[in-house]
Design a protein around this nucleic acid. Sequence first.
DNA 1: TATAACGTGAACACCGCTGTTCGACTTAGC
DNA 2: GCTAAGTCGAACAGCGGTGTTCACGTTATA
Lengths: 211, 211
Amino acid sequence: MLGYCGRMGSKNSTATKRADALRSIDAIVQAAAECLGKNPEASLSEIARAAGVGRVTLYAHFNSRAEVVDAAMSRAIDRGNEVLDTVDLTGDPRLALARYIEAGWHLVDQARALLAAAQRELPAGRIRELHAGPAARVETLVARGRAEGAFRTDLPIAWMVNVLHTVMHSATEEIRAGRLTPDHAADHITATVLAAFTPPGTPVPETGGGA
Amino acid sequence: MLGYCGRMGSKNSTATKRADALRSIDAIVQAAAECLGKNPEASLSEIARAAGVGRVTLYAHFNSRAEVVDAAMSRAIDRGNEVLDTVDLTGDPRLALARYIEAGWHLVDQARALLAAAQRELPAGRIRELHAGPAARVETLVARGRAEGAFRTDLPIAWMVNVLHTVMHSATEEIRAGRLTPDHAADHITATVLAAFTPPGTPVPETGGGA
DNA sequence: TATAACGTGAACACCGCTGTTCGACTTAGC
DNA sequence: GCTAAGTCGAACAGCGGTGTTCACGTTATA
């Protein structure tokens, strides 16, 4: 947590800030995460307005748009990690994957839009750095599932992780397009990914609605 | 074909144009499809330059950016249809799907980026109109596969079509990111989607490299 | 070859976003 | 209650994109 403040040369030095300043910063980062989560090219004016703060105040705390994006990205990742930390990823890899999807599918689309913003403002190294944590969690799960024979091994781990995230993301797009209702999303994603991960020659598991 | 010219109030009226004008228009539409296929926010200056044409010339043939996007989109769809028309979609739905993927996976990413551009410049109705043709082809195939018992029926057709296109698109992103080589793309997509489409309780087909 | 259509660069006005400065006002904290 | 820190709107310069006009050069075509 707090990973979004005082990263680089941002004006948030270690010097003690006043309470209202901290409140402003928090409101800005939160608004940035929301706005950029919806629209990667949201302007700083929009973000300031959404934060209930003047545009000048925003520039008083962040030197550039890149810093705002970085802060929003860090915040979203921290929030996501908090949620995902509560998920039990032990036991049958198939059930663990289902739990992961259930908990995380709605996080992915905001993260994706944020990522799109980040990819235009932040250096590639910084993005990898931010992405490393969340990625490792899933990679470990997939690797374990492969080792235990629950998941296929004829496709690279990176590809499988990509499929998982891609399908999760596409679900939110389907919802936006009105072709899918939120209450079916997790089931559809789980049924799809579990089948996609099944080793060739093995029957696809039945995923009867209940997680 | 020729679906991209003279759609609405574009300056391409039915009046006979000179040969060099037609050549310019064609170069512009082609360049637009390429540029917008790479970057949905490519400027008209970029497109004109890529077409080897002055910016003013572009405005002589198209009233607005939207018209250029529409023309590029129409062209890309026409081109895609031409390619897909050569693919045999009869016989075993699984093999037909594999052929479809083999022929079309590399078309999807350009179409996607183009779609992103279109979604910001064109009305939703126009987009649906353009998308209807290509979508129908796949929907028919998936529906047939379900009817014949080759594909699962516990998920909506729209969702399955979405999964197919999403996975195809993600492959091109993986290639861009350097995590996948183009010669493996079709195999990975096919293996993934075929498994995802397999009815629960049925073994996942083996897709030993050669399609 | 005449002429209308076409291509062109330069220049224009307009817009929105970025990042900055200034002066005045409000508030937190000692 | 004093002071430094914070907030704010207005206004600035710079940039890049859009869409338009103009005057001049080029080319197709009858």
